[in-house]
Design a protein around this nucleic acid. Sequence first.
DNA 1: TCTGGGGTCCTAGGACCC
DNA 2: TCTGGGGTCCTAGGACCC
Length: 341
Amino acid sequence: MLHVDLDQFLAAVEVLRHPELAGRPVVVGGKGDPTQRAVVATASYEARRFGVRSGMPLRTAAKRCPDAVFLPADNAHYEEVSEEVMATLRARPGVVVEVMGWDEAFVGAETDDPEAVARTIRADVLERTRLHCSIGVGDNMLRAKLATEFAKPGTGDGVYRLTAANWAEVMFDRPTQALWGIGTKTARKLADRGIATVRELAAADPAALAAELGPALGPWYVQLGRGIGRAVVEGTPWVPRSRSHETTFQENLTDWADVRTEVAALARRVAAEISRADRPAVRVAVKIRYAPFSTYTRSATLDAPTTDADRFAAAALDVLELFGSRRPVRLLGVRAEFPPV
DNA sequence: TCTGGGGTCCTAGGACCC
DNA sequence: TCTGGGGTCCTAGGACCC
């Protein structure tokens, strides 16, 4: 199977619309104003050379790279371009495509020469969308996904293969955080238990980790260390489990009447969307981030499933009452949850 | 580094029931 | 009366990913 990942997707799409930006450091995120509360969605490779990274506050990015061009995120446009890319992948006969986000997808294909297929896909995507991508080849999703890192510009040449055959050689000396599913926190917890490398994780006792890190997560981490993952690409369309909107305010809300107004507005936005999708909510959750940055969620099961904006907003306002504190609010969010399939 | 927005899945504790 | 064990649902929070 293959893992296709577009290179610096948002920045690349913007450069296509603004050719004069080619070769310049480009940072996409928020409203494109580095003085606002927002983070980097994608930085071009030129901007990354200055230490600009995804998830970094725009303010910080501007300090590291004052000459960068800051552009607002235009999600509707990225959505369209992404659809074009995915359509290109699906146009190949006999493949199964599992979309993982705007800029990446797994492609299942029966072939004796996956590298040749990968090269063809790269050429097709480039021809049809003028976008570059990197492709990981693997014997399961974990390995294909990780292979892509070694295919990326600066490290590789566009295609890389990672399978059981070279897993130990390539991965064993790397930190556990290199694995897809292990982040900072888990890497720390593992390190505290003497497990720093993929090699050590692969050799760890699943039962011991189950006891310490959770009955499902513990053993799963060991599997990650061994390079084990799902081997079948699923082509069936994804059915969302929830739908939400949230906003970080440029100025904290201090008046609770404003908080109520904003929660109702967010709830109505969510209701409009679940109504359009004909997916009644069975549960509503409200999220508050108080200044400076402590986040809480309260939720409730609805009396009856609904897509009705008035009823959904009223339910959200009821849940809002469950919060004890009315300290200044930095962020509000409302989420609709659907019944389990 | 003063920290977005949209998601998913797992875990643990308490309520409740038999 | 202070005391079982198992199962399921609800809820909040944590961690991770794009």
